[in-house]
Write a protein that binds this DNA or RNA. Structure first.
Lengths: 201, 201
DNA sequence: TGTTCATGTTACTGGTCGGTAACATATCGG
DNA sequence: CCGATATGTTACCGACCAGTAACATGAACA
């Protein structure tokens, strides 16, 4: 097995240690995966040390949980901002979300959905983080259904599921394809025509 | 970190050691992930020992490569059988493939695409297995395009990509959702209506 | 000034894991 | 029967890693 992160870069950035540690964990866990990143590497990247890390997070498992909670919080916050800044205008909400999707899927640093990746790495265990992932995905689905329902789509659950699977598939595909061939480059246009074909009938 | 596979079950089954080892690796790597399964566990599950394993596979990395090659071989074989047994009848080929998808997605033991899972676990490294994954996915895409093109769909690349992302998304979702809510349960009907809407126009 | 509390530092433990050495056993072809 | 070749067995090494102990430092605050 190759080591994923031999010498962690100092992704410092100030702020209290707990915050720096969490930020470093977010970056490293996402980039290299949960299992292949050691707590020492996280502490180093946060410009601190293992002891301080363990004073804030009782164990690596707790840190993983905190990492996923952080991801969920950021994602939920982003969603709420998006919905609020187009409150009432459902079409604009959908459009804003498509913009976000476009951005995610074309990001060079895209390494898939952090939640899905974590689920893969923790499969077959009873890690408490799995609960967070499940809740997160269910919540995301509900949000999508609500938005599409508001926008007047006939079968919002059905459309949401389809949209969801496409997005999910696109993100995981970014790790399996050479950049040139990855079908995720056409995701947004797929979503557009999918939504078009389910337009409020 | 929780251990994923504390005591490997003896999934014996006869045959020469190399074959048993590979079979055990396939099962364990798929069930619990690559990183969390040790070579000792694989050897035990194959009713042999570490030394014999290392005589056939020079390292764990080689075993991982062999595992993914095996997965690819099986998948390619399945595809060819499916295509051959309905040679000439493209509609029947599509139908057979949908049957396969249905089976995969409703399998209780489904833990996502082994290739995609491996890609997640190896992200950020330069593991030789990544090459195999990339080739595999590109090949799968070509096969799908060929089948759909034969079946007379107007934009086979476009349809294939969409079908692909849906399938990929469905498989990864099985690891993120509680069984009841997983949108993958509706995958096949999604695929059907998607194909229907692109019917040879 | 002196106390307190968070943080830094070093060194360590115990366990796991990939990989190897050395030797024993078994099987099979000549 | 003999020797070659594959396999089993045991023990070990070195690296890594999660987690802890003990102590030093430094800053805020009374």
């Amino acid at each position: 097995m190759k080591k994923a992160v031999p010498h962690a870069p100092q992704t410092d950035a100030g702020g209290p240690p707990r915050q720096r540690i969490l930020a470093a964990a977010c970056e490293l866990f996402y980039k290299h995966g949960i299992r292949s990143v050691g707590v020492e590497a996280v502490a180093e990247a946060a410009s601190t040390n293992k002891m301080t890390l363990y004073r804030h997070f009782g164990s690596k498992d707790e840190l993983i949980v905190a990492y996923l909670q952080q991801v969920a919080e950021e994602s939920d916050g982003r969603w709420q901002n998006m919905m609020r800044s187009h409150a009432g205008d459902f079409a604009a909400q959908v459009e804003a979300w498509l913009g976000y999707v476009e951005q995610v899927v074309s990001d060079f640093g895209e390494r898939g959905c952090p939640m899905a990746n974590a689920a893969v790495e923790l499969q077959g265990t009873e890690h408490p983080a799995l609960r967070i992932i499940e809740d997160y995905k269910a919540r995301k689905r509900r949000q999508l259904v609500a938005m599409l329902g508001g926008a007047g789509y006939a079968n919002p659950e059905r459309v949401a599921d389809e949209v969801f699977l496409l997005f999910e598939g696109a993100r995981i595909s970014r790790q399996c394809y050479s950049v040139r061939e990855c079908p995720s480059t056409r995701l947004v246009e797929m979503l557009r025509s999918l939504l078009e074909s389910h337009r409020s009938r």
